[in-house]
Computed example of a mutant assay.
Amino acid sequence: MTKVVVFHSGREEYALPIEQVVSIEKLEGINPIPHLPSYVLGLVKVRNELIPVLDLSSILYDQRSDNEEGLFLLVIHTETLQAGLVVKEAKEILEVPEGAVTDAGLLAYSRTRYFDGVINLEDRMITKIDPEVLIESLEGMKEIRDYVYEQKISQN
């Protein structure tokens, strides 16, 4: 049995492993930074930690979600970075029974390497995302990681 946090982006449901979700925050106080990739809305401070805000709708669907209602910041951590994903309706923690996750078949498609599988339940299908692969696969994340690190050092 694994636990995931379920949220919406676009019209679909997605899930992240609960152990990589730090918190779910209200979306507020984003400081825009010029010249960043279009999926980066800016930086925000969460619990005194400076984190980049990534628009998941922009990453998945090429549509910015800044003017949508009911958005949350799903703060995740990977080995190299904490980041905030802008999502809709991040409010459900789901216990996934063994055997309910199937190989997506899409995993071989290079642009969706971060899809970890599909949680196949009786009445719904939820695409599982691997946050490590997602963060590593985004263009420009190394520079963003370096920038956040520099900001952290200059504040200490």
Rank of each mutant, 00 (worst) to 15 (best):
M1T: 11
M1H: 13
T2Q: 11
K3T: 01
V4Q: 05
V4W: 02
V5A: 08
V5C: 04
V6D: 04
S9R: 02
E13S: 08
E13T: 05
I18M: 06
Q20E: 07
S23Q: 12
I24A: 01
E25I: 01
E25S: 08
L27P: 04
L27W: 02
G29C: 09
I30G: 14
N31S: 15
P32Y: 07
H35T: 12
Y39K: 04
Y39D: 02
L41Q: 15
L41G: 07
L43Q: 01
V44S: 14
V44T: 15
V46A: 12
R47L: 12
R47F: 11
N48C: 08
P52T: 03
I59S: 06
L60E: 14
L60V: 13
Y61K: 00
Y61T: 00
Q63W: 02
Q63P: 00
N67R: 13
F72C: 07
L74W: 00
V75N: 00
H77N: 07
T80Q: 12
Q82E: 14
G84Y: 00
G84K: 00
L85M: 03
L85K: 01
V86D: 02
K88T: 05
E89V: 01
E89P: 01
E89L: 06
E89I: 00
K91Y: 09
A100K: 05
T102G: 03
T102K: 07
L106D: 02
L106H: 04
A108I: 15
Y109D: 15
S110M: 10
R111F: 14
Y114T: 02
F115I: 15
V118A: 07
E122L: 04
D123H: 13
D123L: 12
R124A: 12
M125C: 09
M125P: 03
K128Q: 14
I129D: 01
I129M: 04
D130H: 11
D130L: 07
P131G: 06
E132W: 14
V133C: 06
I135L: 14
S137C: 05
E139F: 07
M141V: 05
K142R: 11
K142I: 13
E143G: 11
V148W: 00
I153D: 08
S154K: 13
Q155N: 13
